[in-house]
Design a protein around this nucleic acid. Structure first.
Lengths: 253, 253
DNA sequence: ATAAACTATGCCGTTACGTTAGAGTCAATA
DNA sequence: TATTGACTCTAACGTAACGGCATAGTTTAT
């Protein structure tokens, strides 16, 4: 049985031009040619084509594929090993590049975020304060004046405007960093690391942010529309993503 | 301060031709041109070049870089995000390809083993013969001429070269089959089945391979460095694995 | 002054085809 | 049977990002 170009092309999923090309460079000359000059491919040719496409898929050049297929099994393993190393290097480079891109996105977001600072500034900390107060109120109700409450009072009382700005900036950076990694999923190590830093940030600057409080803060991000709106403004869906990530973080403690 | 092509090239680490090219496509036209037609780059041009190289490093095309750099910060983030997704896809594809290559290497290793037949052929059977002789000598010493010994003599005497080749091929297939299942552990049913076939193979073609002889053969694989070296050449650790498997096999009889 | 070092433009080559363009072929239909 | 539509052929240009070479002019150092 023999097949014409388009038949082969349709069967295997390549273009007619590709077959022409493979013929031209001597990679896959058809077994026979019709009186009218049509290329006629045999089943063997089809197999060879499959091989070619396989090696191509693996990233080999056509010339390399030709060499590998023509030489009977001799250099194949070595070639593949060498190629594998190339691929791994490529992958490593890609990973580095991806991080670089992420960082760049972060910095761009950071810059934009800084412009929105007034708004975010005004909102976020007051929100956190409010959450703290609410929680503290409950806590107070339960336990009287908690340490956390007093601690926060002491800490925040002394903050200057510059302090606030610096603290805000750090917070913003964390937010945007997490936003840029949203597609990695909430359980991603880098995301979790950022979440951890977020808790530390709150602890350092406001009050001892226990896992319970932190979990509650995550819920607040979704339940309080003011939080949600403001956070999602950084990136849509960030609020609920944060909640999830924070829950996962707390679960693991 | 202005710089000529080679100065810039050396500073930044690109070729002169590249700078020509970037000028040609309007990506980085030098700030000024000397009376003689020399390209004169400014410090600003250098910065721009750095940007270009950065985006290039990230895998953007020159055209894309041009667009990104020219448009003031507006689309940048989006472009970066889109690009990041591309990169992640690329990475995933690479990972798949790497496993495919690994698999192919493995399968070729199996095949290649077959090609090494001559070497293995020459060694393995002479070794088995020797083991047999040694064992038979002991046996003879103990029991006089054993059946097994005579049997082997009769059998092997008639073998033609083709017979040997066929027998070798079978043996090799068993070895490689076992090698490919090493990670299952020596007591794995499939491994044990192959071991059983290995004993049968010896019995069929050489001499009645009693459990005692078979066990001794297993020890030989580890104790005789010529065996060990040759077997481990199929796959490192195969010799001792075989011994273990053969012992387990014999224990169960 | 002369050579060495540098610069310019222009064009071909690379990879793996895509994309016309012009012309011939085959099978089925009007 | 003639025509149409689907298919085929070769030939040639275009792509991305330069590398490399040729030829010719310029600058710089000795």
């Amino acid at each position: 049985m023999s097949y014409k170009v388009k038949e082969v092309a349709d069967m295997v999923g390549v273009s007619v031009r590709t077959l022409h090309h493979y013929d031209q460079i001597g990679l896959l000359p058809p077994e026979s040619i019709s009186p009218a000059g049509y290329r006629l491919y045999s089943d063997q040719d089809l197999e060879r084509l499959q091989q070619i496409l396989f090696f191509k898929e693996l990233g080999f050049s056509l010339q390399e594929s030709k060499d590998i297929i023509n030489k009977p099994g001799f250099d194949r393993k070595e070639a593949l090993s060498a190629h594998k190393n190339l691929l791994i290097e490529k992958k490593n480079r890609l990973e580095k590049i991806i991080s670089a891109v992420e960082q760049t996105i972060e910095s761009i977001e950071g810059v934009r975020q800084m412009d929105k600072k007034e708004m975010f500034e005004a909102f976020d900390m007051s929100m956190i304060e409010r959450h703290k107060e609410k929680y503290a109120a409950e806590a107070e109700y339960k336990y009287g004046h908690t340490d956390a409450y007093q601690e926060s009072e002491k800490k925040t009382a002394r903050y200057s405007k510059e302090d606030w700005t610096a603290i805000m900036k750090q917070g913003n950076e964390l937010y945007t960093r997490i936003a840029s990694k949203m597609d990695r999923g909430p359980e991603d190590p880098q995301v979790q690391e950022a979440v951890s830093q977020w808790r530390q940030h709150i602890t350092d600057n406001f009050y001892n942010c226990t896992p319970e409080i932190f979990r509650g803060l995550g819920d607040l991000y979704v339940n309080d529309e003011r939080f949600t709106a403001n956070i999602d403004q950084i990136k849509p869906g960030l609020a609920s993503f944060l909640r999830e990530a924070m829950h996962i973080y707390c679960d693991k403690l």
